[in-house]
Design a protein around this nucleic acid. Sequence first.
RNA 1: GCGAGAGUGGCGGAAUGGCAGACGCGCCGGACUUAGGAUCCGGUGGGCAACCAUGAGGGUUCAAGUCCCUCCUCUCGCACCA
Length: 639
Amino acid sequence: MQRNWIGRSEGAELTFPVADGEGGITVFTTRPDTLYGATFMSMAPEHPMTMEFARKSGREKEVREFVERVARQNREERTGEEMAKEGVFTGGYCVNPATGGRIPVYAANFVLYEYGTGAVMAVPAHDQRDFEFAKKYGLPIVVVVQPAGEPLDGAAMPAAHEGPGTLVRSGEFDGLGNEEGKKAITRHLEGKGLGRATVQYRLRDWGVSRQRYWGCPIPVIHCESCGIVPVPEEELPVVLPEDIPYSRERGNPLAAVESWLRVPCPRCGKPARRETDTFDTFVESSWYFLRYIDPKNDRAPLDPEKMRRFAPVDQYVGGVEHACMHLIYARFFHRYLRDKGLAPGNEPFLRLLSQGMVCMQTTECPKHGWRYPEEVDENGRCRQCGEKVSVGRSMKMSKSKRNVVEPSELIAKYGADTARVFVLFAAPPERDLDWSEQGVEGAFRFLGRIYRLVAQRAAEIAAASLAWDDSAEVRRIRQATHRTLFKVTGDIEERFHFNTAIAAVMEMVNALYLVEDAAWKAPATAGALREAVEILLHMLYPFAPHAAEELWARIGGKGLLCLRPWPEADAAIAREEQAEVAVQVNGKVRGKITVGVGATEEEVGALALSEPRVREHLAGKTVRKTIYVPAKLFSIVAN
RNA sequence: GCGAGAGUGGCGGAAUGGCAGACGCGCCGGACUUAGGAUCCGGUGGGCAACCAUGAGGGUUCAAGUCCCUCCUCUCGCACCA
C-alpha cells in the first residue's frame, strides 16, 4: 500500500547542454532508451531557468504571464489527468546529447518542480503527456521504440506508445531491446559525463506543522536580522504557556501570548519571536515508543545498547489510514535513527495488523439532514419535524454524519465488558465493523448467561477440589475444556481472531448449561467442572475482564485472575478418541461412519464400503481409487 | 487510470484444498409464569423430493468459498511523479 507513497523509481539523470550558452539542464527519466526521440524539453514554471531563458530571448512577458497564471492555480486544479496540458515556449534551446539536435525548451503546467529535477525531456512518441503537449503546440513526434508489427508513424499515431519494443532511429543503439537500450544509453552518456543511473524517491508531502496549541513546540526563533535561529540546547525544552486565551477565533492561540512569544534572538540579542506552529502528532508518534525502552535517559534520546535488546516493536496495530500516513513517517524516522546509530535494523515494526473501522448506518431527514439515532423515533420519523427519515448505508462513524454511539451511555446501560465483547465478536479486527444495537444486546445476554451459570454453581465449584477420576464423564468434560482452550489460545495468539475465540467460549458455556445438576454435586465430576470453569474464566478475561474477575472471586479463586498465568492446554486430554468420517462417492457425501482415530485406511475403507447408501451409489460401478483423509473423509472414485 | 481490500443464509460472520453456513442476531415453537420485550429448552439456507446453493463464467483436482484464468460490483487510498 505504501508503494505509491514511497514512489521508488529507477532511471537516470541526463544532462542536456544549453544551446548558445553555459551549463546544462539535468532531467530525471525512467526511459533513457527513448532519448533519441526527445524533441523538446518541458520545465516546471517555478524552475529558475525558465525565467532565465525567457529573459535572454526577450520572451519575458509571455512567459511571466504563464508562470503567474499557473502559480495561482492550486495543486488540485493543476494536477488531475483531465487537466489540459498547457505551456509556453521560453525562447531557449538546449542540445539533445544523443542526436546533437537543438530542441526548444517549454515551460509546462504539468511538470512538478518538487519532483526529480523539475525538468523533463519530452518524448512525445512514447509518453502520453508529452504526446498531447506536442500535438497541441505542433512539435515533432519521432518514434524511437518500435513494437512488433506495423512500423509506427509519428505523425499518424493516435496516442503515445509507452510499451516495450526495439530501438530505431537511435544511432548505434538501433536494434537493441528497449530494456537493454536503457542501460546502454545511460552508460554511453555516463562516459561523456552527461548522465548517471539513479533511483528517485517521492515521499508524500508531510505538513509537519500545525496551527494549534496542542502539539510539541517547534524549537525555533524568528529574528529579523538572523532569520531562523534554533533555540539553544540549554534552553530546551520549550515549554508552552498555560495562561493562554482559548478562543474560537481562527489562528493559533499561542500568537496572542506576548510574554511567551517575545524573546531575544539567541544569536544577536535583538527582539525576536518564537515559532507558534507546533508539530503534527505524527512527528512524536514516529519514535516515542522507542523512548519507553529508555525513558529516564537525560543524555541522549535513546540508548543504542538498550535499543538492541528491545527494539523493534513486535506488533503494530493501526487503522488503514495509518498504514500510509503514520507508518510511513515512522519508518522514515526509524531510518534516520538507524543512520545515527540510535536504533537497530531497518524497520521499526515487525508485524502490521491494520484494523477496520467502526461503521454504522446513517439516517437522514429530508428537512434536517443527518440525524443522531436518538433524534429518530420508533417509527423512523424525525423527532423535530415528523418527516420520515431515509436510512442510508453503513459508513464510518463520524460526528459529521451523526452515526455515532455515545460510549458513556453505552457503558452506563450495559457496562464496558459488553461493549468490548460486542466489538470483538462482531468481526475479525482487520475488517470493518458494523455497529448494531441488537449485536450489543446479544453480547450483554451472553455475559448474563455466563454470569448466571457461574454464580449459580459458585458454592459447588468453591467446595470442589481439582481432582477427578477416570470416568467417561470426566474425560468428556476435560476434553471439551482443553479443546476449547486450544482453540481460544490459538485464535488469540496467532491470528488475533477474537470473534472465533469468543464463539468457542460461547459454545463451552452452552455445553456447561447442559451439564446435569448431579454432575455438579458428585465429587468425581465436580473437580473436572471446577477446572472447566476456572479455565473458562481465564478465557473470558481478555474480553470481559470485570465480569471474569468478579466471578473468579465468587468461585473462591485465589488472588487476582489477571495476575495468574494463562492456563496451558493439554494435548493428550484434548485428543478425540472417535471421529466421524464422511464417505464420498465421486465427490458427493453418501454416508457417515464413526471410527477410532487410530483406525487404518483399510479398516476405514472396509467400513465405508459396507455403508448401505454408499453401496447403493456404487452399484454397477468399479472402484478406481480411494483417498483417506485421517479422521475426516473417505473418498471413493468409481465408474 | 494505478494500488490495496472485500463480495458466503433475512443480518453480522465461520470454514490448514476435505461434510459450506461454527458462534451470534433475527424469526418460529415449547417450558416456567397473573404476565413476559426476562430466563431455560428445541428448531431455523432453498426445494415435497432427487437435488440446488459461497458476485458471473471458464479451468485444475478424487475433492474448490479456498488454487489458476476472464469478467462484474462495492469500499478505501493515490492520482500528470517524467
